[in-house]
């Protein structure tokens, strides 16, 4: 199954929002069929996964939720979502239900809102990523070098256990020169202002790398007029089609190890 998340940040006037969708993108490629379900939000308190039901989510329906919904209760928490067939209480490990089994991922529309404008991408956090040790190599050309543009980086991490563990991400240039290190936590929507790092972003590609942890790398930019861009980078396997793609992923990750 897939989990979803809010891209919360600490920027004034920006809000995170998500369209959670309870239907498959393609009946041909999806083994799972849409079912009546309960939409939960969940977060870690460090010892348990705290699950709360948000609403009933009938089959083929959607639910849109804005971070304002959680404002008072959970201001500092990273909020995740799951669509479950039964109501859940607190858990020691994440629940991975037999749902969202599909060749094409069941995704959500993950958005950032400024005034009445949105930027978004189609995303999900697959449960198989929560069960294994993950690392990161994200090659991004999406950092915009302009004094009127602010660039930000999200690293969404979710693991099976509710513990908060620290790990580092290095920002490298294509010569493997380390430019900065970011401190991340597991089970967190980590958010960084790339303008605070004293880097002159005059290259066309930057590499965000970690051997200790990983997740979904997402790049967000906004200019002073409120134009926004939001997109994730492909995992290394997406540079190849068919065959043993994970062989090439290993090569790439080994190369960028420091």
């Amino acid at each position: 199954m897939n989990y979803y998340f809010l891209l919360k940040n600490n920027i004034k006037n920006l809000q995170s929002e998500i369209d959670i969708i309870n239907f498959s993108p393609s009946k041909v490629f999806s083994k799972s069929k849409s079912e009546d379900a309960i939409l939960h939000y969940f977060y870690s308190n460090g010892e348990d996964w705290v699950f709360k039901d948000l609403c009933n989510l009938p089959k083929d329906q959607t639910f849109t939720v804005n971070e304002n919904y959680f404002k008072n209760e959970l201001k500092e928490k990273s909020i995740f979502f799951s669509i479950n067939k039964k109501k859940l209480n607190n858990q020691k490990l994440l629940i991975d239900e037999n749902y969202h089994i599909s060749k094409i991922a069941w995704r959500a529309n993950i958005k950032i809102k400024y005034k009445e404008c949105y930027t978004s991408y189609q995303g999900e956090y697959p449960s198989n990523m929560t069960k294994k040790k993950v690392s990161l190599v994200s090659c991004s050309p999406m950092i915009q070098n302009n004094k009127n543009i602010k660039n930000y980086f999200y690293l969404v991490n979710l693991i099976n256990r509710p513990e908060f563990d620290n790990f580092n991400i290095n920002i490298l240039d294509s010569n493997k020169q380390k430019l900065a290190t970011l401190n991340c936590m597991t089970n967190t929507v980590n958010f960084f202002d790339l303008n605070d790092l004293n880097i002159v972003y005059n290259k066309n590609m930057y590499i965000f790398q970690s051997t200790d942890g990983g997740g979904i790398p997402i790049y967000f930019s906004i200019d002073r007029n409120g134009q926004m861009s939001l997109e994730h980078t492909h995992p290394p396997t997406e540079y190849t089609l068919h065959g043993n793609r994970f062989f090439f992923q290993r090569l790439k990750k080994n190369f960028w190890k420091l």
Partner: peptide
């Protein structure tokens, strides 16, 4: 490894040539 190179890179769209909105 029976695989193929695949180009699925990043396109930017802009209305002012300053700010680019990206999609992979």
């Amino acid at each position: 490894k029976n695989t193929h190179i695949a180009e699925r890179g990043y396109t930017g769209f802009s209305k002012d040539l300053n700010f680019w909105n990206f999609v992979h």
